[in-house]
Design a protein around this nucleic acid. Structure first.
Lengths: 202, 202
DNA sequence: GTCTATATTTCGATAGAC
DNA sequence: GTCTATCGAAATATAGAC
């Protein structure tokens, strides 16, 4: 019940190998996104990292914990935007503020593209993680909170659908732009998405 | 090289157990979508189907083949729409016809929601399938053909981004509507999405 | 902190009876 | 067409030396 029952390695005193944990996470993020969590073995990670499976187990007790830590980074992303949402009196006010919210979401999505790719391509593994104990707290991820808002039956149907469509248009446009519109300047892409999506609220 | 090198069981003459293959596919579609292809073992499928792993291997030589067959159903969906696209002279004409195309896509998506969920939640497994021989033909799935069109650098950037955003808004709205807007009549949902997305082309 | 070696489990796939 | 039984490979995870 203590706050920190197991102290993690975190960082060694000197420059020994303090950032190994980070290197594992970065590589895992890359591999989990491009071939999927289930299809990525610890052996894959260890090999490409130039170490062994056992070394990974020094830093993470279970394979799940690697994905879990990446999931926590994901939680951090929407925090600012969602706290802003929670501060509003009711869902009607939230719906009214939607256009400004989408604008911030676009920024956040563009800045955290790879983490969102991880989420998008490993929805199943992440959901299994949430069902799997020791994860109750901080379970409030962006998706779930959006879901709750859109599910409110007291808002007009058209309002709700418009919120959903604009969210998908914004996220999809930014996410897909990276691969499909590679010849277009990223900043220009952001501007285009903002302009196009804003057209949904006239 | 023959057209049908291996004759599949298909259907037994009488009512013996002709639809076993279909039952496997239906259950696999359900399990693959809700827990993922990699996380679904043949034992899982066999158990919930009330049979054994070995029985599955009579109908499908490899686990991959089950996913492959479901993938083929997916190919069939967009065919009509995409043939219509191919019949046009150039990408500029295709871009001009985009609003009508989105309208048909909305219909198709709504009618094949679960298959599209399978695709969305198993992108990695499906991509691995395509790299994995004996799948060269019919490799023209909807996604790839859309991708090619949107990647054409000769179209104006805004046109391309508008196409992308409208596609995501339409697909996302329909797909998410099933879970988020369950209290709203599905037909009304379709109408709302059509109306909202059409606002992107004014 | 990282290694070698191994335990343990599970999965995909096969063999052969019925 | 379906079963029992089993093989072989690969994965997660652990033990213990350094």
């Amino acid at each position: 019940m203590a706050t920190k029952p197991d102290v993690k390695p975190q960082m060694g005193r000197r420059g020994s190998a303090p950032q190994t944990r980070e290197r594992i996470l970065d590589l895992a993020l890359e591999l989990f996104t491009e071939r999927g969590y289930d299809a990525t073995s610890l052996r894959d990670i260890a090999e490409r990292l130039g170490t062994t499976k056992a070394a990974l187990y020094y830093h993470f007790a279970r394979k799940e914990d690697i994905l879990l830590e990446l999931h926590l980074r994901l939680h951090g992303i929407g925090g600012e935007v969602l706290d802003q949402l929670d501060a509003m009196p009711d869902d009607a006010a939230r719906a009214a503020a939607w256009p400004q919210l989408i604008d911030r979401v676009i920024t956040q999505v563009a800045e955290n593209r790879q983490l969102l790719l991880l989420h998008q391509r490993n929805q199943n593994a992440l959901r299994a993680l949430e069902d799997d104990e020791r994860h109750q707290a901080a379970n409030e991820d962006m998706e779930e909170r959006f879901r709750r808002l859109l599910a409110n039956p007291e808002l007009p149907a058209e309002t709700r659908m418009r919120m959903a469509c604009s969210l998908f248009a914004a996220m999809g446009g930014i996410m897909a732009g990276g691969e499909l519109l590679g010849d277009i300047d990223p900043e220009e892409q952001l501007g285009l998405v903002r302009k196009i999506v804003s057209g949904l609220f006239d």
